[in-house]
Simulated scan of single mutants.
Amino acid sequence: MTLFESAQAVAGASGDGAIDWAAVAEAAKAATKPGAVDVSEAEAEAYAADVRDARTRLREVSGMTFDVPNTIEIQNRHHWLDANVETFERAFDPLDERTEVLPGVASSLNTATTAGALAFVSRHVLGQYDPLLLADGEHGLYFVHPNIRRVADDLDIAFPRFRRWIAFHEVTHAAEFGAAPWLSDYLEARLEDGIAALGEGELQTDAFRELNVAMTSVEGFAELLMDEAFDGEYDDLRRKLDARRKGGSPLTKLLKRALGFQLKREQYERGREFFDVVAGDRGIAGAAHVWDDPENLPTDEELDGPELWLARHQDA
C-alpha cells in the first residue's frame, strides 16, 4: 500500500465539511487495538536484511536505478495511524475552507466516518511505502508488524517468508518512485485537485481518474517485478493473497468496497495484465520506460489496450 492509496480511501469517506483531525486520531485509536510490536534485535535486523536483499534483486531484475529509504519503521497499528493522520490533515485542508449550514453536524459526521475509515485500514495494511506526501524529507518504509504476523498465521505461511514477501512488495514501490522522481508530485497534484474540488462541493472526476490510472500502473508494475525478483517459491503466496483480497465476511467485503479496497484489487489485476503484454513485447527494461516521463504513463484506454501504448512508444 502507498500513502496515496490510503489518502484516496479517506477521500471517499470524508464527504463535505471540516474534519476534526485530533478527534480522528483519538477515535481511530480507541476503535483499534495497537497490537504487539515487541520485536527482538534479531527480528528488526531480519526486516532490514529483507529490504536490502529486495533492493539488490530488484536492481538486478529491472535495471532501474534507485535506493531504499533510510527510514525503516516496524510499527503497530497506532504508530501507523500517527504516521498518516498528520499528512492527511495537510492534504484535506481545502475541506476546512468550506462552510455548511450545520457545520458542527457536518464536522462530526466527517470526523466519525474518517476515523472509521482509518481504523479499518490500520487493521488491514501490512506495509506502506511513504513518499512523504505534502512534506519535505526522507522517504520511509513502514511495516505493520502485528498485521503481518496475524495474516501469516491466518494464511498458514511461515512468518519469515511472509515478512520477506511484504518487504519485496514495498521495495518495488521504492524502486518505482526512485526511478521516477516526478511521480510523487504527479500523484500529489491530482490528489490535491480532487480534494480541493470536494471542498467546493464538486467531484473532480478527471483528477481522480488520472490518479487511479497512475496507481494502476504503480500496482501493476510492482506485481510484475515481484514475480521476477522474489528469491523463492511464490505460487502459494500469490494464490492465498489473491483469495484474501477477494475474501472476508459480508460486512468486511462491504467495508472494503466502500473504502476502495475493491478498486485496489482491480488496480493489481488490470495493471498486471497491461504490463504482462508490454514486458512480453519489450522486456522488463522496456516496460520500465513508463517511469521515464509522465507522458509515458498509459492512458485509461491504453491500460485495456496495451498494444496502443506499444504503438505510441515504438522506440521504447
Rank of each mutant, 00 (worst) to 15 (best):
A243H: 11
L255M: 15
D293L: 02
P250T: 14
D235R: 09
S217K: 00
F221P: 03
E200I: 03
G271P: 05
E210V: 01
D231C: 04
G286H: 04
R265E: 15
A189Q: 13
A222T: 00
F230K: 00
E192Y: 14
L254D: 08
R239G: 08
G280H: 01
R238C: 12
L225I: 10
F221Y: 05
T252R: 10
G286C: 06
R190M: 10
A207P: 10
A243R: 11
S217W: 03
D293Q: 02
D242Q: 12
S217L: 00
L191Q: 05
A222F: 00
Y234A: 13
V218G: 05
A258I: 11
G201M: 06
R238F: 09
D281M: 08
M226I: 10
A243W: 09
D206P: 11
Q204A: 15
N296H: 10
R190W: 10
E210R: 08
A229M: 06
A222L: 01
R265Y: 15
G280F: 01
S249P: 07
I195E: 00
D276R: 11
S217T: 02
L225M: 12
E202W: 08
H289C: 13
M215A: 04
Q204M: 11
D193R: 14
M226N: 07
G283P: 10
E223D: 11
D236W: 02
G283S: 08
P250M: 14
L251D: 14
R190S: 10
E202V: 10
N296F: 03
G201I: 09
M226F: 13
F275G: 04
W291R: 02
R257Y: 10
L251K: 15
E266K: 15
K240S: 03
L237M: 06
T252P: 00
A197I: 02
R245W: 14
L191D: 01
